[in-house]
Nucleic acid binder design. Structure first.
Lengths: 235, 235
DNA sequence: TTGATAGTTCGATCATAAACGAAATGTATG
DNA sequence: CATACATTTCGTTTATGATCGAACTATCAA
């Protein structure tokens, strides 16, 4: 008698506070690393790992390893639909969800990815550098040409890769919230570092999220012709 | 129901085998007494009573006392919708094996989803209404245009949404067995209700499965140009 | 190489809740 | 009234699973 085969198992999988926290964090359709999901669920990495394993096993999530990170995302639109249907009958949780969605929005908009800039702004900036002919995708890396080198140097970015450093100079890093590449590697790190120094961006306390300052907004337009407020509005 | 349940409580409420059995039994839209629900869940009356109490407390069911019986029903169409959404991801669909039980086959063919028609027939009818230009998908809803309105009215379907009803008029409901949308909302309910009145469809005792009567078979062809025998199983 | 970081696995502890026997409450029928 | 039946409440047993410390694997950087 299998008119209701896995549904109990499935619902009990959802029916756990920590797992729900993770699932709603993933409702945006973007993929998030295990550490971030652990943080949003307010549990230790061990516990989060157990939960994530069960969610994958249960077909609610899929995972993909990228470097030493493992990114998790909802397995299908149907999963999101089911979660939304459950949200519809669960009473609205007033203030807290609003705050969290603001936080989520901030994270998606701009954040640090290890030591370089990611999120909508990170991707938009990278795409702009490509469009301006300053960098060029080449395999897993980017190539910085002379035009780009002098432009970045004029902004005070360290563009010479230290010969003894074995770190890749300019790497393509797949941005999981945008599903496009942004600039990583030591060049990405020094560029991001310089943006902090210039006061164009600043950390939002309590997380990886970053905001673009008014100075940064005008700076991006003046130096790169990049309007980051456009990105912001679109969220 | 003093405190508004959050999604985790709600899902864990659903995520229990006995309770799922009861909820699925109630998916047909009929109210059932506690004893019958105990039977379908294969637990003792004491256990069933505990479960039912929790389901009412959690806002998934409402109860009504008639004599010494107490009848339970799903609290709202939204609850049915959430259950269907869970079925959509929990039912590893597509294999229509020959060994599939007659009951399962009947359920897939035609059934009530709370108060509207679902299954192959429900989806086929909905698609036909779209093909005939009577309704049109619009976001999460359908829009009923003038042609559709007069056609359905001529069949005796209530097509005016009561202004005081806060229920959505014509909604898209994802069908778990077909993975396509069928017509839900108050319009779906009144259409289905009219099909019962006309004797085009009738309940198969013992579940939420529905069969199309010979009268219905010719009626669907005459009024909608829809051949439901094509959908019908090779029984 | 060494150290740092992300993530997983294992084991022990602890809390929750599902199940049913027994008994109580309530409601119809004789 | 008495009896039968539907349902609920109570108390005990038992099973499941969430959690985190500790230890392990892998990737990356210097």
């Amino acid at each position: 008698m299998s008119t209701s085969p896995n549904i109990a198992e499935l619902a009990s999988l959802i029916g756990e506070p920590s797992r729900v926290m993770m699932l709603v964090s993933l409702l945006g359709g973007k993929a998030l690393p295990a550490s971030e999901l652990a943080q949003s669920a307010k549990v230790t990495p061990q516990t989060a790992s157990t939960h994530l394993g069960k969610l994958v096993e249960g077909g609610l999530l899929t995972s993909e390893s990228h470097g030493r990170h493992r990114y998790y995302r909802l397995a299908s639109p149907e999963v999101a639909h089911a979660l939304e249907a459950l949200l519809t009958i669960s009473a609205p949780q007033p203030v807290r969800s609003l705050r969290e969605s603001d936080q989520m929005r901030a994270i998606r908009y701009a954040r640090t990815c290890y030591d370089h800039l990611a999120g909508e702004v990170g991707v938009a900036l990278t795409q702009k550098l490509i469009a301006l002919g300053m960098i060029e995708a080449s395999g897993q890396d980017f190539v910085l040409n002379e035009a780009g080198k002098s432009k970045l140097r004029s902004l005070g970015v360290e563009v010479e890769s230290s010969p003894k450093s074995r770190r890749r100079f300019a790497r393509q890093c797949l941005d999981w919230s945008e599903r496009r590449h942004h600039l990583a590697g030591s060049l990405g790190a020094s560029l991001t570092n310089r943006l902090f120094e210039l006061g164009w961006i600043e950390r939002i306390p309590g997380g990886r999220a970053v905001r673009v300052t008014p100075k940064g907004t005008s700076g991006f337009i003046a130096e790169f012709g990049l309007d980051v407020t456009g990105e912001k509005e679109r969220v």
